[in-house]
Computed example of a mutant assay.
Amino acid sequence: MDLHTTSTTDLPKTAAEILKFAQDTRIFLFYGDMGAGKTTLIKSMSEALGVTDAVTSPTFSIVNEYEGSYGPVYHFDFYRLKDQSEAMDMGYEEYFYSGNYCFIEWPEKIADLLPDSYTGVHIKVINAHSRQITVENIS
């Protein structure tokens, strides 16, 4: 599925479309350059899931937990990981295989630890306000 946004006002609709496309998938991998809008899109997706907490990048804590209408929502940012053992030490499996929503930024840092089934979200910057978002279900 290909989506195009031209403003942050497009994001609630885009988030709803991605969640609908994913069907029952609860693991989402977000790919994109620094500043592409991964955290901003995750914020909209979290809001669509009933999260009322402030959604912020967990760059230093690695994972943030938010309470949503469908249970906990876990938001990961693996950008600062030196190697995959850091994810293993934090018990990533408990989160990934919990059945709860997991939004993962910089999944390429833990490529060998990723589940076999997930929804991939690739964000490409077109210009300051425009993004091309490609979404795929992998199983």
Results as ranks from 00 to 15, higher is better:
1 M>H: 12
4 H>Q: 13
4 H>S: 13
4 H>R: 14
4 H>G: 00
7 S>C: 13
7 S>V: 09
10 D>T: 05
11 L>K: 02
12 P>N: 04
12 P>L: 06
12 P>H: 03
15 A>D: 05
15 A>G: 07
15 A>W: 00
17 E>P: 00
17 E>R: 11
18 I>L: 12
20 K>D: 15
21 F>R: 03
22 A>N: 01
22 A>M: 00
23 Q>W: 00
26 R>W: 00
26 R>M: 01
27 I>P: 02
28 F>P: 08
28 F>G: 05
32 G>N: 12
33 D>P: 09
36 A>E: 05
37 G>E: 11
39 T>R: 06
42 I>F: 02
42 I>W: 01
46 S>V: 02
47 E>L: 07
48 A>E: 14
48 A>R: 00
49 L>F: 02
49 L>T: 05
51 V>S: 00
53 D>L: 03
56 T>P: 04
58 P>R: 05
58 P>I: 10
58 P>S: 10
61 S>F: 06
62 I>K: 02
62 I>G: 07
64 N>M: 05
64 N>K: 08
67 E>F: 03
71 G>F: 10
72 P>T: 11
72 P>H: 14
72 P>N: 15
74 Y>A: 11
75 H>P: 05
76 F>T: 07
78 F>C: 15
78 F>E: 06
79 Y>P: 11
80 R>L: 11
85 S>I: 06
